[in-house]
Design a protein around this nucleic acid. Sequence first.
DNA 1: GTTTGGTTAAACCATTTAGTTAAATCTACG
DNA 2: CGTAGATTTAACTAAATGGTTTAACCAAAC
Lengths: 206, 206
Amino acid sequence: MHEALTTEQRIKEAARKVFIRKGLAGARMQEIADEANINKAMLHYYYRNKEQLFKNIFEEVVGEFGPKIMGVLGSDLPLKEKISAFVTQYLGMLNANPFIPLFLFSELRNQPEEVIEKVGIRSSGMLDQLDKQLKREAKAGRIKPVSTAQFIVNLISLSVFPFLAQPLVQGIFAMDEKQFNQFIEERKTVIPEFIMSAITIKKEVT
Amino acid sequence: MHEALTTEQRIKEAARKVFIRKGLAGARMQEIADEANINKAMLHYYYRNKEQLFKNIFEEVVGEFGPKIMGVLGSDLPLKEKISAFVTQYLGMLNANPFIPLFLFSELRNQPEEVIEKVGIRSSGMLDQLDKQLKREAKAGRIKPVSTAQFIVNLISLSVFPFLAQPLVQGIFAMDEKQFNQFIEERKTVIPEFIMSAITIKKEVT
DNA sequence: GTTTGGTTAAACCATTTAGTTAAATCTACG
DNA sequence: CGTAGATTTAACTAAATGGTTTAACCAAAC
């Protein structure tokens, strides 16, 4: 056979789309089958049931997005470059998959522990690395002392939230799709400047 | 009768809880009935069907949270105080209702237009007010010139996101409930300082 | 005390949906 | 060719779920 994709792959892609759009409770097996251009029987031929299929997709998504991105934070780039690289990579990835955050946070509530492990953030040594870096910079007087937790939460908040609020942002500021993309593009410089400006030690101009 | 609450109120509260926890698709009418300590028949006696009930709750939540908070941003407080007041009020409100954001953003995808109107953000004159204020401050050289949209998105991102990511934050930084509350409490000062520090015009210390 | 509206309980109906099954077809491969 | 695995079709079952109905009950109002 010479299909572009194997049936199993088609199922996975379809399931991914539908689950991400509708969540576990909202997704219909029939809808997934239709999206994959196969019939329901095939679905169960490859995956025993809905939960199996969902778990499969969910773990794949988590395992894909979590570590790939956390890597940057644990790297030994200088702080400024690190922030820049993180934001650029993260926003790029989210731009291509704008529904991922809502999907993840929605389903997160049901199985927090599993997700955290899959993300691999705790085990990666990323926290320690970044913690040390921030303390070092602070000690050297280059930045204000900041809590690592607050720093990370700020960084990720600024990056992820706009995608969660996309419909709202577009509505409030009367943006179309293109303008929203432009808005996100701007944030690739806005966010790093914002953060660096916030934590760098400076004097007020009097 | 001398009940603390009328049956209709009990239904609403119960429905609110369940919908916010489970979303429209995930919520079960029986679960709502149980939560309200009544039987299913009563549910349909007061609300024709699930959609009606949901719409009711949803609009109530949107109408309650949106405007109350947007008011602060449209006020004529000085910028610094305004940010502080906004963050304090917002975080306080979210702390008492941590599931609201996920609920809103989840259901937002299905009816963006209605939500935006209900939030009343576009009509409140808030945008203009804040826009002028930021331009004035920038012209006076007290802050850097900033896009109003980027400013608002930053402010709300920093405030709301931690609640969406609460399970993740607790997991990653090994916080229990109490520590998480403490973390949020800290953000009431961290966020305003962060933002003010980011936009205030200063010189680097050399 | 009778009426009326809120309330309960339980059975019930109709629809949706996950999941199964069986038979027929197709396709690669030995 | 013939077998085996992949795929389709369509009918089916079982369970969950939204929604309805009926009869009985109760408390307050008239």
